[in-house]
């Protein structure tokens, strides 16, 4: 945290604070634990099965009696996945697209969130309704006109065009979630910082911004996932030359129908960065997501 005095004293949004531990031991904890393990097994199984298939010899993968451990372990499938078509190109493009979308989305969204949470102005209600409505529109329905529009402005088959498109996917959610955080930061906090000689911007940066961190992380992760995963728009708006990771994997599915082991290797490669990133920031995600809604 920034070493500003008021920030330390002030209560951060409740959501960001770790929940008080429940010390009371409910009866049947063992039963709950067993259930919990079962849930973890079921939820984790597809992930495990993907990794398992990825690292076992292709012959074992099509053995009618499945092997539950990838032994003997092999990297052949990974090699084959690389070989089938360019791998780093799509991954690199997906990273660029996701990172740019998140970066721009956060800045632009934060500004909008500030506007609707810190200012009373005419048309505010209309803007809120508008942003909420936009979130309703099923994006799949828009693909035809979005395609025509991007083509009209010369953004077909451009990464900038797809980034622009993805921005609209994440902006409503970003604005709404960040708004939830901002309204929870007492205005007095900013004011006291300003009394201490900070400018309004300075007060914002030193006081408000740190308190927004969980919200920013949560929306960043949400946006990243959306952009990293998106399939249909990437399929229609980019040529093969510029294809993204999901499209790369999608092609792989149709053309090499039954080569499952290399496909799982490709899938693993694509999933690893996201899963790792997620595990690292997961605690912040949860608090971030609820703060926006519960404390509204």
């Amino acid at each position: 945290m920034t070493p500003t005095a008021p920030a330390a004293e002030a209560a951060p949004p409740a959501a960001a604070r770790p929940a008080p531990a429940r010390r009371r031991r409910p009866r049947g904890r063992a039963l709950y634990n067993a259930l919990g393990v079962l849930v973890a097994l079921v939820a984790g199984f597809p992930v495990y099965w993907m990794v398992n298939t990825a690292f076992k010899p292709a012959k074992d993968a099509i053995d009618p009696d499945p092997k539950f451990l990838p032994w003997p372990m092999t990297l052949d499938n990974v090699r084959r996945a690389f070989q089938i078509s360019d791998f780093w190109g799509p991954i690199g493009r997906s990273l660029v697209i996701a990172a740019s979308t998140v970066g721009i989305g956060l800045v632009v969204g934060l500004l909008a969130a500030l506007a609707i949470s810190r200012f009373a102005f005419r048309g505010r209600r209309a803007v809120i309704v508008g942003i909420l409505t936009v979130q309703m529109v099923p994006l799949i329905a828009m693909i035809i006109p979005v395609f025509l529009m991007l083509n009209d402005i010369g953004q077909y088959d451009k990464l900038t065009g797809i980034i622009l498109t993805y921005l609209t996917f994440i902006l409503p959610f970003t604005v709404w979630t960040l708004r939830g955080f901002i309204v929870n930061i007492p205005r007095e906090l900013e004011e006291s910082a300003m009394v201490d000689g900070c400018s309004r911007t300075g007060a914002f940066v030193r006081v408000v911004f740190p308190l927004l961190a969980p919200g920013l992380v949560a929306t960043a992760v949400y946006g990243f996932i959306q952009a990293w995963n998106e399939y249909l728009y990437a399929l229609m708006l980019l040529s093969k030359e510029h294809q993204t990771a999901p499209v790369w994997l999608g092609n792989f599915t149709t053309q090499h129908g039954t080569e499952y082991a290399p496909m799982m290797a490709g899938a693993t490669l694509m999933a690893v960065p996201v899963v790792v990133f997620f595990l690292l920031v997961q605690r912040r995600i949860a608090s971030g997501l609820t703060a926006g809604a519960v404390k509204g």
Partner: peptide, 29 residues
């Protein structure tokens, strides 16, 4: 620790983002 990592990811993202714009412009020409 985590914060640093996140910051690092953010910076990396920024760099990549800028680089992307650069290469895109060239493609256009």
């Amino acid at each position: 620790m985590k914060r640093q990592l996140i910051a690092a990811v953010g910076v990396a993202a920024m760099v990549v983002g800028v680089a992307a714009c650069g290469s895109d412009a060239k493609g256009g020409k």
